[in-house]
Measured scan of single mutants.
Amino acid sequence: MQRVNMIMAESPGLITICLLGYLLSAECTVFLDHENANKILNRPKRYNSGKLEEFVQGNLERECMEEKCSFEEAREVFENTERTTEFWKQYVDGDQCESNPCLNGGSCKDDINSYECWCPFGFEGKNCELDVTCNIKNGRCEQFCKNSADNKVVCSCTEGYRLAENQKSCEPAVPFPCGRVSVSQTSKLTRAETVFPDVDYVNSTEAETILDNITQSTQSFNDFTRVVGGEDAKPGQFPWQVVLNGKVDAFCGGSIVNEKWIVTAAHCVETGVKITVVAGEHNIEETEHTEQKRNVIRIIPHHNYNAAINKYNHDIALLELDEPLVLNSYVTPICIADKEYTNIFLKFGSGYVSGWGRVFHKGRSALVLQYLRVPLVDRATCLRSTKFTIYNNMFCAGFHEGGRDSCQGDSGGPHVTEVEGTSFLTGIISWGEECAMKGKYGIYTKVSRYVNWIKEKTKLT
């Protein structure tokens, strides 16, 4: 034993070699072989497995989906700052455009905790909710729209109204504003409101030439003092309507412009014939205590009207009353817009006519005020429907199939267009061939041609 100890002390290297040989010859039971080890760690190889990531292109799944990435790591994937920024906006807080917040056709661009709407022409605001041009839906104005110097929408209202708090709607500024039905039992019968379409306001006024200088022999019209197929109006439903009495009662109609003036057809009036105007009328054979009678003290036909040349060209006249009318729910003026808007309103496509005229061709006159909704007829169809001249200051309205029309005794009465609950004068009943005849239409004086003249002559002093 002493000898062994001496050998170990003198030859430590020998001992180490012996131990190493023993270990190498022993069977290893701690580690699995290569094949079995792979069965336990069965993990798919990654895209760049075996390579240094710093030297390969980034992978979106590896960089940002398996674990949260930084902007720089995302930049490695896209290799483009702009594309990385677009991805980053949604990656950080989701897609803010998912709810489609942009209105009126706006395009949404996502941002971090926010979004941006790219608005089409005519709109602005956070969600493109603000109209900035009158060309689109009248700028959301209830009545009139004008573009300011910086191309912003400025709404306005006709006389007797003021802008509401929203700067879009119009509200009454006087007790009985024009064009409004205020009798409670008839307010439910107000005709369907007309909503502004998209309009090209630059070209809204037709490029028409008034044929002022045409000389033409007097034409022989049949029954051209021209509501057939209409309905009984309720008291106060058309408070701007008046009836004219002269040699015979209810020979023509008219509309209240203001307390002192009536507008009617020029062919209705004769110099030297006494005319009485009755406002607030409903049943011409009954006294309903809503009527107001006034005498006409002055007749002003349009300066281009000449019955000797043509009885229905420039067929418009103004009547001055001896005493002002007292405005109330049964006696209310009709609204008159400017030339541009009167023309736009007419193009809405349908209007209402009213009167006490004959209820059928050569038949009896109506006792109760009649009204009828009539569609506008395109000019080409209008011209083809008659052998008589249709001037540019006239328009056609009615039904091709016949059966409904204005008729004798309705002449001078109103053709009105309702705009968001307020009625505007767009025409004056003038003439036609018979009444409600198939293929024939009622012919009306186009008020847009005469609004400046009306307003100039009827100013209240």
Results as ranks from 00 to 15, higher is better:
residue 446 K to C: 04
residue 444 Y to T: 01
residue 414 P to M: 14
residue 13 G to I: 15
residue 420 E to V: 09
residue 398 G to H: 03
residue 176 F to W: 08
residue 41 L to C: 04
residue 44 P to V: 11
residue 138 N to F: 04
residue 375 P to C: 04
residue 343 N to H: 07
residue 13 G to P: 09
residue 434 E to R: 05
residue 14 L to V: 11
residue 415 H to G: 01
residue 31 F to V: 15
residue 328 N to D: 08
residue 336 I to Y: 02
residue 458 T to W: 01
residue 259 E to A: 09
residue 82 E to F: 04
residue 280 G to N: 02
residue 401 E to P: 13
residue 326 V to R: 09
residue 319 L to C: 07
residue 310 N to H: 11
residue 118 W to G: 01
residue 99 S to C: 14
residue 121 F to C: 03
residue 442 G to W: 04
residue 32 L to F: 07
residue 330 Y to V: 05
residue 364 R to L: 08
residue 198 D to V: 11
residue 418 E to K: 09
residue 12 P to V: 13
residue 130 L to G: 08
residue 130 L to K: 15
residue 338 D to C: 04
residue 367 L to I: 11
residue 23 L to M: 11
residue 194 T to M: 14
residue 204 S to P: 11
residue 65 M to G: 05
residue 287 T to R: 06
residue 134 C to D: 03
residue 228 V to D: 07
residue 325 L to G: 00
residue 121 F to M: 06
residue 143 Q to C: 00
residue 267 H to G: 04
residue 240 W to Y: 03
residue 365 S to I: 10
residue 302 H to R: 02
residue 295 N to W: 04
residue 43 R to G: 15
residue 461 T to Y: 12
residue 210 I to L: 13
residue 166 N to S: 04
residue 338 D to N: 10
residue 125 G to F: 00
residue 300 I to K: 03
residue 99 S to F: 09
residue 345 F to H: 02
residue 94 G to Q: 14
residue 336 I to G: 00
residue 347 K to A: 14
residue 187 S to G: 09
residue 352 Y to P: 02
residue 354 S to H: 05
residue 323 E to A: 12
residue 431 W to M: 12
residue 73 E to M: 04
residue 277 V to N: 01
residue 14 L to K: 03
residue 138 N to A: 06
residue 251 F to L: 09
residue 332 T to N: 04
residue 440 K to R: 10
residue 385 S to A: 13
residue 2 Q to I: 08
residue 430 S to I: 11
residue 136 I to G: 06
residue 296 V to I: 06
residue 337 A to H: 00
residue 100 N to D: 10
residue 111 D to L: 10
residue 148 S to F: 07
residue 76 E to G: 15
residue 364 R to I: 08
residue 118 W to Q: 02
residue 238 F to D: 02
residue 193 E to A: 13
residue 369 L to H: 15
residue 426 T to I: 01
residue 190 T to K: 13
residue 99 S to I: 08
residue 200 D to I: 12
residue 100 N to C: 04
residue 270 E to L: 15
residue 351 G to F: 01
residue 159 E to F: 06
residue 68 K to A: 15
residue 222 N to V: 06
residue 254 G to T: 00
residue 262 I to E: 00
residue 100 N to V: 05
residue 376 L to P: 04
residue 272 G to W: 07
residue 210 I to T: 13
residue 176 F to D: 02
residue 328 N to K: 01
residue 375 P to D: 12
residue 329 S to G: 12
residue 20 L to G: 02
residue 275 I to Q: 03
residue 333 P to I: 00
residue 328 N to V: 00
residue 432 G to H: 08
residue 27 E to M: 04
residue 250 A to W: 06
residue 276 T to G: 06
residue 452 N to Q: 11
residue 236 G to T: 05
residue 127 N to R: 11
residue 261 W to M: 02
residue 30 V to I: 14
residue 119 C to Q: 00
residue 363 G to S: 12
residue 312 Y to G: 04
residue 294 R to I: 02
residue 24 L to V: 09
residue 231 E to P: 10
residue 394 M to S: 06
residue 135 N to H: 13
residue 277 V to F: 01
residue 23 L to P: 02
residue 101 P to H: 03
residue 428 I to S: 01
residue 149 A to K: 13
residue 162 R to P: 01
residue 42 N to T: 13
residue 152 K to A: 13
residue 429 I to E: 10
residue 265 A to M: 02
residue 300 I to T: 04
residue 316 I to R: 00
residue 331 V to P: 01
residue 225 T to R: 08
residue 21 G to L: 15
residue 41 L to N: 13
residue 439 G to E: 07
residue 171 E to K: 10
residue 345 F to N: 01
residue 367 L to H: 14
residue 435 C to V: 03
residue 311 K to L: 08
residue 25 S to T: 13
residue 299 I to S: 13
residue 257 V to Y: 03
residue 456 E to G: 06
residue 170 C to E: 01
residue 310 N to R: 06
residue 82 E to L: 05
residue 58 G to T: 15
residue 55 F to R: 15
residue 310 N to M: 05
residue 376 L to K: 05
residue 275 I to V: 11
residue 451 V to S: 11
residue 268 C to D: 00
residue 250 A to F: 08
residue 416 V to T: 10
residue 265 A to H: 02
residue 128 C to D: 00
residue 3 R to Y: 09
residue 335 C to T: 00
residue 455 K to L: 07
residue 252 C to E: 00
residue 230 G to N: 12
residue 387 K to P: 07
residue 4 V to D: 08
residue 145 C to K: 02
residue 414 P to Q: 15
residue 118 W to Y: 02
residue 271 T to S: 09
residue 375 P to Y: 11
residue 36 N to W: 05
residue 449 R to M: 14
residue 228 V to I: 14
residue 309 I to M: 12
residue 359 V to D: 11
residue 123 F to P: 01
residue 245 N to H: 14
residue 17 I to R: 02
residue 128 C to F: 01
residue 231 E to T: 13
residue 100 N to M: 08
residue 237 Q to D: 05
residue 181 V to R: 15
residue 60 L to W: 07
residue 310 N to W: 04
residue 52 L to D: 11
residue 231 E to Q: 10
residue 146 K to I: 10
residue 459 K to A: 07
residue 126 K to G: 05
residue 343 N to R: 07
residue 315 D to A: 02
residue 437 M to W: 11
residue 16 T to K: 08
residue 459 K to G: 09
residue 140 R to F: 09
residue 81 T to N: 13
residue 443 I to C: 03
residue 444 Y to I: 07
residue 346 L to D: 02
residue 193 E to G: 14
residue 325 L to E: 00
residue 366 A to W: 07
residue 455 K to E: 04
residue 225 T to Y: 15
residue 263 V to F: 01
residue 110 D to Y: 06
residue 326 V to L: 10
residue 349 G to T: 04
residue 341 Y to H: 06
residue 368 V to H: 12
residue 61 E to R: 08
residue 393 N to V: 02
residue 396 C to I: 02
residue 39 K to T: 09
residue 33 D to H: 10
residue 282 H to W: 14
residue 263 V to H: 00
residue 438 K to S: 15
residue 341 Y to F: 13
residue 336 I to M: 06
residue 309 I to K: 13
residue 343 N to D: 15
residue 227 V to A: 11
residue 222 N to Q: 11
residue 87 F to N: 15
residue 54 E to R: 08
residue 454 I to L: 07
residue 258 N to H: 04
residue 297 I to F: 04
residue 362 K to E: 12
residue 343 N to C: 03
residue 117 C to I: 00
residue 154 V to W: 10
residue 402 G to D: 10
residue 284 I to G: 08
residue 102 C to E: 00
residue 377 V to C: 03
residue 91 Y to D: 07
residue 353 V to H: 04
